[in-house]
Design a protein around this nucleic acid. Structure first.
Lengths: 147, 147
DNA sequence: ATACAAGTTCAAGTGAACTTGAAGTCAAGG
DNA sequence: CCTTGACTTCAAGTTCACTTGAACTTGTAT
């Protein structure tokens, strides 16, 4: 019945591990107040913010992108439902794109792999958006070459 | 006009870096013959195998899973179109599942985040398949908790 | 007052999928 | 024969999203 939650509560309620919550805080995705003894105390609102993060991850955004989205929220007042839905609006097109890609892949599965035509450098199914253009060092984004 | 391709040719034709090809070989996903001087020589067939790998990755399979699929191909003869399409058959359902999830997410975007109801531990949209069940150490599978 | 769970920081480790660098070998043209 | 570009191995580095462990402090229940 407290107004502020300790990290364990937040972890239990959100399903996100406490270590992950600390990590998110370090990355600036969430914030916390501190108790007298320097322990984290979260206002209940944080749960919605975390929900947003989890949602966005499932859709395929990186934490960095999610942070950029969250930064668009009004800094000095609690976000309203409209604030949240404004953010999530841009995702719809993102979902649409991914769904379209998957459907292209599904359509091409038999056509492209089943038949003998398969040639990676000319098959637009295997190479949408030009795989060749790399993203610098480190692992390539795992499924689509995100900008 | 040679029957065997060197690694650079394969890299150019597939759009997959030579270092990645060596890595795939180390992981048992592809194989190569060797020249007298111990350089890799690939039969043209390898291109199809690589195409399969790239395809599967875009769908969301890990290299390990892809390896398991490839292991089902007949070991002693060149795979036919039917062999390939048998493999890719299982993917269709995988794609369908992912599309369904994305559509669930899209539907829930405004409902779940826009309104005040958002509660991670009870919202089936944010928590399909029980996020709480973890996958051991290391990063969590990025978007769906794959088995 | 004390025990003990739950919190803290910080550095280092993890797994996936590669890339990079060093130091050397091979192959083809001139 | 020599140069030059493409190839070789091997170890170590990179990114992302966290987790783990050590050593220590807080908070609460008895």
């Amino acid at each position: 019945m407290e107004d502020l939650l300790v990290i364990g509560d937040v972890a239990r309620r959100s399903g996100v591990a406490a270590s992950a919550l600390r990590f998110y805080e370090e990355r600036g995705l969430i914030r916390s107040e501190r108790s007298d003894g320097k322990q984290r105390r979260y206002p209940r609102e944080v749960l919605r913010r975390i929900a947003f993060i989890v949602f966005a991850q499932r859709i395929g955004l990186s934490l960095e992108e999610i942070g950029a989205e969250l930064a668009k929220l009004p800094p000095n007042r609690a976000p309203t439902g409209r604030d949240w839905s404004r953010l999530s609006k841009t995702w719809t097109s993102r979902i649409d794109e991914r769904v379209a890609e998957l459907e292209r892949l599904r359509a091409g599965l038999t056509q492209c792999i089943g038949c003998g035509c398969l040639s990676l450098d000319r098959c637009s199914l295997a190479n949408p958006g030009d795989r060749a253009a790399r993203l610098g060092p480190g692992p390539r984004y795992w499924i689509a070459d995100r900008p």
